[in-house]
C-alpha cells in the first residue's frame, strides 16, 4: 500500500491544536490546493468548491481540540473534507439546474486533478472489498440488498420476487446497511492500523 506523504510536520499540528494561528495558516498553505482539488472532483464547479473549502477550514479550527493524536491528522482532515463535500452534493443533487449543468458541461473542460488515474486493478480491489462485506450478510438480507442495488428493483418488485411483504424487504435493507456500516468500520480500523504500523 502506498503511504501518503505528510504535508505538515507534527510540531505544527501540535501548535495548531493549542490554538496557534500561524500553525493554522501553515496548514492552510499546505493543504488548500489539495482540498480544492478534492472538492472539485466531487462538485465540479468553482463556487461550490471555494465555499466547501472555506467550511472545511472553519470546522477544522473549531474542532481542533477534539484532535487527540497528531498521527491521524491526515485521516481526520480527509473525513472533514469528505463529509463537507458530500453534504453539499447531497443538497445540489436535488437542484434541477445543477443536474442540467452536469449533463451539459463539456467533461473535457473540467479540470483533472489526479496525480495518477484509477487503475483497473484498484477498481477491482475496491469492488472485491465491497463484495467481501456484502457476502458476509445473512442470506435474506443479502438477497434483498443485491436486488435493490445491483438489479435496481423497487421495494415492491423485490417483495414479489422474494415472496415476502414490502415491509420485510425494507427491514432487510435497513439491517443490511447497518451491518455493512459496522463491518466496514472494523475493516477500516484494521487498514488504518496497518498503515500506522508501516509508518
Amino acid at each position: 500500500m502506498k503511504i501518503a506523504k505528510k504535508l505538515v510536520d507534527e510540531a505544527t499540528i501540535n501548535q495548531f491544536i493549542a490554538g496557534d494561528v500561524k500553525a493554522f495558516d501553515a496548514i492552510f498553505e499546505a493543504y488548500n490546493a489539495k482540498l480544492e482539488n478534492f472538492a472539485y472532483s466531487i462538485l465540479k464547479n468553482e463556487s461550490d468548491t471555494e465555499e466547501t473549502v472555506q467550511e472545511i477550514f472553519v470546522k477544522l479550527w473549531e474542532k481542533r481540540t477534539s484532535l487527540k493524536q497528531t498521527s491521524s491528522f491526515e485521516s481526520y482532515l480527509f473525513s472533514v473534507a469528505y463529509n463537507t463535500s458530500m453534504t453539499l452534493i447531497r443538497k445540489r443533487s436535488k437542484e434541477k439546474h445543477y443536474l442540467e449543468y452536469l449533463e451539459n458541461v463539456n467533461t473535457d473542460s473540467l479540470i483533472n486533478v489526479l496525480e495518477s488515474e484509477f487503475t483497473e486493478e484498484e477498481l477491482q480491489q475496491l469492488q472485491q472489498r465491497l463484495n467481501k462485506h456484502i457476502e458476509a450478510l445473512p442470506a435474506k438480507q443479502q438477497e434483498a440488498f443485491k436486488l435493490k442495488h445491483f438489479d435496481r428493483l423497487s421495494y415492491q418488485e423485490i417483495a414479489t420476487s422474494m415472496n415476502i411483504s414490502k415491509n420485510t424487504v425494507e427491514n432487510h435493507i435497513v439491517k443490511a446497511h447497518k451491518y455493512l456500516r459496522e463491518s466496514l468500520k472494523k475493516d477500516y480500523f484494521i487498514v488504518m492500523l496497518l498503515v500506522s504500523l508501516l509508518n
Binding site: M86, I89, R90
Partner: peptide, 30 residues
C-alpha cells in the same frame, strides 16, 4: 450516479473510493 452518491446510506460504503481519491489528488495550485 449523483443520486447514488447523494444517498446517505451509501456514505460508508463509498468511503474507500474517496480515500483512494484523496490519496491520488494532487496539490497542484490552480
Amino acid at each position: 450516479t449523483v443520486d447514488n452518491l447523494a444517498d446517505e446510506r451509501n456514505n460508508e460504503l463509498y468511503e474507500p473510493i474517496f480515500r483512494m481519491l484523496w490519496r491520488k489528488t494532487g496539490s497542484q495550485k490552480r
